[in-house]
Simulated assay, not measured.
Amino acid sequence: MSTDPSPSESEVSPPVDPPEPGAADTAAAETEATEAQAPKRRVVWVVFAVAAVLWALDLLTKNLVVANLEGQPPKPILGGLIYLQVIRNAGAAFSMATGMTWVLALIAIAVVVAIVWIARRLRSVGWAIGLGLVLAGALGNLTDRFFREPGFLRGHVVDFISAFVPNGQGFAIFNIADCGITVGGALIVLLSLLGRDYDGTSTRKKKEKA
């Protein structure tokens, strides 16, 4: 009497262990975290790229006007819309707080440190651009505080842009760094008014959920 052949060992599939509870959720969470880090890193680099470009432009323009225009009368450009003339500013942006040079230098250092710390948490490109502009402005004027006369932390900032009329008669004489601080600060204020937070979320939606 014949009997059915028993299946060979190679034909028998080994038992498959069921997936551990929560393993799929853990893998999905790790994937989402990895994907979230990529845009975060890109936003951080926006801050430093904007800051580097404007900082370099500020240093270049200051060195050029010092080398070519210092001690000369105001030079009109753009049909008199702008007058170029070099002054040495011991105060803050737009010649404010004159006589507090070393205090202003310490404040600028604190601003730089704060922006670098916040940059790690950024998710908003708009905030990244705004902070990059402010960072460049702080670094530009801080560079003058460090390396220009009369000495370390007491150096006078080079200002050279007089708007509309010479000698700062219509508006305080300023530089590219001051422009970065002003435009960057205005952009950050605008984003805040629109409810856009630095981490990419909407403050208005947060209030609605609350």
Score class of each variant (00 low, 15 high):
Leu60Ser: 08
Lys206Ala: 10
Ala93Leu: 13
Arg121Val: 06
Ala92Asp: 04
Thr26Asp: 14
Thr143Leu: 03
Tyr83Trp: 15
Ala28Trp: 15
Ala33Leu: 13
Glu32Asp: 15
Val12Glu: 10
Gly184Asn: 03
Met1Ile: 08
Ala110Gly: 07
Pro5Leu: 15
Arg145Phe: 07
Val46Lys: 05
Ile173Lys: 00
Lys75Cys: 09
Ser13Leu: 13
Ala108Gly: 14
Gly22Val: 10
Ser8Lys: 14
Ile107Asp: 02
Arg121His: 11
Pro76Tyr: 08
Val158Pro: 01
Gly80Asn: 10
Leu78Ala: 11
Lys62Ala: 04
Gly170Trp: 06
Ala172Met: 09
Gly99Trp: 05
Trp45Ile: 14
Gly137Glu: 04
Pro21Tyr: 14
Arg88Ser: 11
Ala128Glu: 01
Phe152Asp: 10
Pro19Ser: 03
Thr26Phe: 12
Thr26Trp: 01
Gly184Pro: 00
Ala172Trp: 07
Val103Asn: 02
Thr31His: 11
Arg148Phe: 06
Thr31Trp: 10
Ser8Cys: 05
Arg154Phe: 04
Gly151Pro: 08
Gly185Ser: 12
Arg120Asn: 05
Ala119Ile: 14
Gln72Trp: 02
Thr3Asn: 12
Arg123Ala: 07
Val86Tyr: 02
Ala105Arg: 06
Gly132Asp: 13
Asp25His: 12
Asn89Ile: 05
Val157Arg: 02
Ala51Trp: 06
Pro21Arg: 14
Val125Ile: 14
Gln37Ser: 15
Ile161Gly: 00
Leu153Gln: 09
Gly22Arg: 11
Asn89Asp: 05
Leu81Glu: 09
Asn175Gly: 10
Ser202Phe: 11
Val134Phe: 03
Gly200Glu: 12
Asn89Tyr: 03
Leu191Arg: 04
Leu106Ser: 13
Val47Glu: 03
Gly185Asn: 15
Glu11Tyr: 02
Gly137Leu: 01
Glu11Thr: 12
Trp127Thr: 08
Leu69Met: 08
Trp55Val: 03
Ser8Met: 07
Gly130Trp: 01
Glu20Arg: 13
Lys205Gly: 05
Asp144Trp: 01
Leu131Glu: 03
Cys179Lys: 04
Pro150Trp: 13
Val134Gly: 06
Ile115Trp: 04
Gly200Leu: 11
Val44Lys: 09
Glu32Thr: 12
Arg88Ala: 05
Ala136His: 04
Lys75Met: 14
Ile161Cys: 05
Ala49Ser: 13
Ala92Ile: 13
Ala29Phe: 11
Ala105Tyr: 09
Pro73Leu: 01
Ala51Val: 15
Asn141Asp: 05
Leu59Ile: 01
Val116His: 01
Gly155Thr: 06
Ala90Trp: 03
Arg148Glu: 06
Glu35Thr: 07
Ala136Gln: 03
Phe147Asp: 03
Ala28Pro: 08
Asn167Gln: 07
Leu81Thr: 12
Thr98Cys: 00
Trp102His: 08
Gly137His: 01
Gln85Ile: 00
Gly140Ile: 00
Gly151Asp: 10
Ser10Tyr: 05
Ala49Asp: 02
Trp45His: 11
Asp4Lys: 11
Ser202Gly: 13
Gly140His: 02
Ile107Cys: 00
Lys62Gly: 06
Ala33Met: 13
Thr98Lys: 12
Asp17His: 01
Trp117Gly: 02
Asp58Leu: 05
Leu187Phe: 06
Gly130Leu: 11
Pro39Gln: 05
Gly184Cys: 05
Ala114Pro: 04
